[in-house]
């Protein structure tokens, strides 16, 4: 009987497999794993078409290229450069360089289209929207890798569809949001994020659509749709090209932001 019980237990554990282990994971571990899988590449380059749809139907087209350096120690770098489109040339040359740090404030530098110089800008401006989209400076940093040590997490909902996890900034963490809620699939891909202000009002909802998962678990969304309740507009970001090859180190410099073309 004892042998039968042991066999049954082992069989059940095998049958349940990963989901069983996932069920036992803490909220922080789930979010950490979500972003660990997201970061399974040393660097990345992606071209994105942006459509901003305003209340009333007016639309604006934009385009940018984003380069990301995923540093194993967390000293990530992100570069965003806007390109011209058929209908919008005013944003061409707008650029942002983010240098993330462990244990101290990140650095960010902005290149305005009208200036041939880079300006270092304050990190305290995190909640500011970037390039007339619904993506803030803070989003541009956090979405390449959540700093899980800076937030308190709580599982709000758990089931076959995955988890809903609340993230609250810890005391001392500078954030433009009072709360975020992640929707994470059982394979740890993030399908949605809700952003709330400090009074608990919903600011915007981000949906990650067309998620593709690679053999090593690395996931990417083909389309990101951010619907802003506050601004009554929607930003659709469609990735038209994505490469995971090594990006040249010179890309993550202020000098690269200044480069024309």
């Amino acid at each position: 009987m004892k042998q039968f019980t042991q066999f049954t237990l082992i069989f059940v554990l095998f049958a349940i497999g990963i989901p069983c282990r996932a069920e036992e994971m803490s909220s922080q571990e789930i979010v950490a794993k979500c972003f660990t899988l997201y970061r399974q590449t040393p660097s990345e380059r992606e071209e994105t078409q942006v459509t901003v749809i305003y209340e009333g139907g007016r639309t604006e087209q934009k385009a940018f290229t984003r380069w990301i350096l995923f540093d194993p120690t967390g000293e990530d770098k992100v570069v965003i450069k806007f390109r011209k489109t058929d209908k919008n040339n005013l944003d061409e040359g707008l650029g942002l360089l983010i240098s993330r740090h462990i244990g101290r404030k990140d650095d960010q530098w902005l290149k305005m289209p009208s200036l041939d110089k880079i300006r270092k800008i304050a990190i305290a401006d995190s909640g500011k929207y970037f390039g007339g989209t619904d993506i803030t400076f803070e989003d541009a940093r956090q979405l390449v890798g959540e700093r899980t040590q800076d937030f308190d997490y709580k599982i709000l909902q758990s089931g076959a569809e995955g988890w809903e996890i609340e993230a609250l900034p810890k005391t001392g963490t500078e954030s433009g949001y009072g709360k975020r809620i992640f929707s994470i699939q059982p394979d740890f891909a993030c399908t949605a994020v809700e952003y709330y202000d400090t009074r608990g009002e919903l600011l915007k909802k981000q949906e990650n659509r067309g998620i593709e998962t690679q053999a090593n678990g690395m996931w990417r969304a083909k389309v990101v749709v951010v619907t802003s309740s506050l601004l009554k507009r929607t930003t659709e970001l469609t990735v038209t090209a994505r490469e995971f090859r090594n990006v040249d180190a010179s890309t993550f410099t202020q000098d690269f932001l200044l480069r024309k073309g």
Binding site: D248, A249, S250, D255
Partner: peptide, 8 residues
Amino acid sequence: EYTEDLFK
């Protein structure tokens, strides 16, 4: 302009 790694 010619760039190679961090050299320009």
